[in-house]
Design a protein around this nucleic acid. Sequence first.
RNA 1: GCGCCUGUAGCUCAGCUGGAUAGAGCGUCGGACUACGAAUCCGUAGGUCGGGGGUUCGAAUCCCUCCAGGCGUACCA
Length: 550
Amino acid sequence: MRGSVAGIISEALKAARQDGSITSADEVNVIIEKPKLPKFGDYSTNIAMLLAPKEKRAPRDIAAQLAEKIAASDTVDKSEVAGPGFINIFLKPSYWTGVLMEVLEMDGDFGTSEYGAGKKVQVEFVSANPTGPLHIGHGRGAAVGDALANILKAAGFDVTKEFYINDAGKQVKNLGESVDLRRREYLGEDIELGENHYKGDYIKDIALTYLKHQEEGGVLGGSSSIEDFACEAMLSLVRTDLAAFGVEFDEWFSESSLDKKIDEAIEELREKGHVYDKDGAVWFRTEALGDDKDRVLIKADGERTYFASDIAYHRDKLHRGFEGLVDIWGADHHGYEARVRASLKALGYDDSLLSIIFIQMVSLMREGVPVQMGKRSGEFITLRHVIDEVGRDACRYFFLMRKADAQLDFDLELAKKEATENPVYYVQYSHARICSILDHASAKSVKLPTEVTDISVLSPLSSQGDIELIKKLSAFEELVTKCAEDMEPHRVTYYLQELAGAFHSYYNANRIVSEEEKDVTTARLYLCVAVRTVIANGLRLLGVSAPEKM
RNA sequence: GCGCCUGUAGCUCAGCUGGAUAGAGCGUCGGACUACGAAUCCGUAGGUCGGGGGUUCGAAUCCCUCCAGGCGUACCA
């Protein structure tokens, strides 16, 4: 779409250079945009304004020469010079029916591109400690990570989704102890929970399950420690919740599997001269690489820090051949970024291959009033609770409505409302509505062939309304690549709301199925099919269903 | 103190590498179903883009500074 407009412009520039009206041979970073106002055309470019300083001539003068050459293209209806030197390009309706044809042909693939060129990227997200159920913050990370992975895939990247299991540190030990204490409690002992022990009811559940397994003389009786058992149980809970949320990972990477690799990583840093000993601890010279201060890798007591395993983990990712890394972290970890980047640089990598997306806080609301979360009891609102209450679709959509690094108010009541004010229903409704229109049409025995073979079938689509809607569809392709480039899945929700809105307006303004005008009906039904396709493709990127009935 | 994020309509937020008259939803107010789903649509009102400088043909967008809010600044994980 935009590509071919860019082609028209560069052809015009080439022609101008050939006939000598443009003399500078410098590359210019041309911007092609879609003007807000229809009188400024379908596309507009600032190329003349960029050339003006190089040519040392008035922008409007240059624009006039280029506009003439642009108008010569057979897809261009007319081309005008406006304002300080914009060139506004008006395309022929046949251009737009061509676009519609493309949507229909590509169907489920419309929106995909080769932008990523098969580059291997890894998206690591959620990575929650297996010490408790997932809460809503994890849910937001899961929704963003999964949607981003879908978008990157659509944009032509080779994507791997990974969950990093923190199963080596002290917190897993605390988990094991917590379960063990509850186990002994069930056996009649008096117990006292320490400050670091987990107090949620899920701990009791695990303790009970453990006892049951023991009674049955299960496999876990001897070989496996209660700590491993608890960790496994927690993980399976996490997997279940993620499955309920529709999120699947390609890899589950265990921190404990790193072990020797941590020493290797430290050794490599030492060889490269980034490590020194002080006060009985081993330090990493991160300050020289952009961090606020140097960091400890091995504590005076001999334990390796969490940071040390994180270095080893990222090193391992790169050894696995990923050319791009995406880490999705809670916003409270942003202080961590500088040291991780420092470690990549120290290991000899360009740290720009790592992108970190920070997930800001979610405030749960109920009709505008914040939902209290008992901090003392340690009872967070779990992701599972929210999925069960508002449904998976609404939950995912709401998590994706704001850009990741902006705080999000999640109103449970709004998410459940089946009304205009709820964007999920608004978008899904447009899909269901189209399905219903198509049913209606076939009941009236207006049948569409499975494939459009002749573009002239679409030629009745020439009104302003028809063209506007097709334009909206065409924007989807570049939206997807843009979202991939900037790693901002939230824009898909805005786009879908706009497209759904455009369709609803169109529907109210135009009779689609009409028995008198068969040609118009057929063409419009194809337009409906294309809108439905794009809505479905967009929702699929978000991991939200596209219902045929609601 | 230093660092990161945020500040756009009454509310919640979009605004792509600087572009032409700053947008949407909700909420206000007023309209539209004897035809395809009114879970919809149409219209109306509402803004010194936190303040002040600068860069240029042109700034919500880039730079500096100040103000306000959030978060982070561990030999914790």
